[in-house]
Design a protein around this nucleic acid. Structure first.
Length: 164
DNA sequence: GCCAACGTTGGC
DNA sequence: GCCAACGTTGGC
């Protein structure tokens, strides 16, 4: 593996799993495939930030989900490949993610990097909703708006089978 | 473009 | 600390 600019200090032996939403206009699974890795910038929700900052570990599994698009759903698999570090876009006045209240001394917003694993068939949101094995998925909970949600080991294993 | 649900902000 | 106003998310 190439040198990692942001290695996690304490990769957990227990792998955890996440669903991460991205608008394909901004960053699709094809963008990730082409880039290899992407910095997960632009998260401006404290709960989602805290997942990345406090709970994500190197090698955690990621369901790459396309949101706010004609066919929302899971489009591929990825994995966490860095520890959390400050989001550069919060300091950039020209960025839509600029946060004037953040400082370099005490940055508000952090993110991890994510590495491409593989594309899958598109498992649509409708498919997910109709699968009883996914009925407890956090991302499907009524009113959920979090762009990053935990996925249970059972849900992950089930999805590996469903996605083929 | 609509709108429900939720998060954040800021006056008090 | 309350809560109204406002902003954002994201499916439809």
């Amino acid at each position: 593996m190439a040198s990692d600019p942001h290695p996690a200090p304490d990769a957990s032996p227990t792998r955890q799993f996440w669903l991460m939403k991205s608008e394909p206009d901004e960053a699709s699974i094809d963008h990730l495939k082409a880039a290899g890795t992407l910095p997960w910038t632009g998260v401006r929700n404290y709960q989602a930030r805290n997942f990345m900052r406090d709970l994500m570990r190197l090698g955690d599994g990621v369901l790459f989900y396309h949101s706010s698009c004609p066919e929302p759903g899971i489009a591929g698999l990825a994995e966490v490949c860095s520890a959390a570090y400050p989001d550069a876009t919060q300091f950039d006045p020209d960025s839509p993610y600029f946060d004037p209240k953040s400082t370099r001394e005490q940055p508000r917003w952090l993110h991890v990097d994510v590495r491409f694993v593989r594309k899958t068939r598109l498992l649509s949101l409708a498919d997910m909703k109709r699968d009883p094995a996914l009925s407890e998925m956090r991302t499907l909970a009524p009113g959920n708006r979090l762009s990053i949600t935990p996925v249970s080991a059972a849900e992950w294993a089930h999805l590996q089978r469903v996605l083929g």
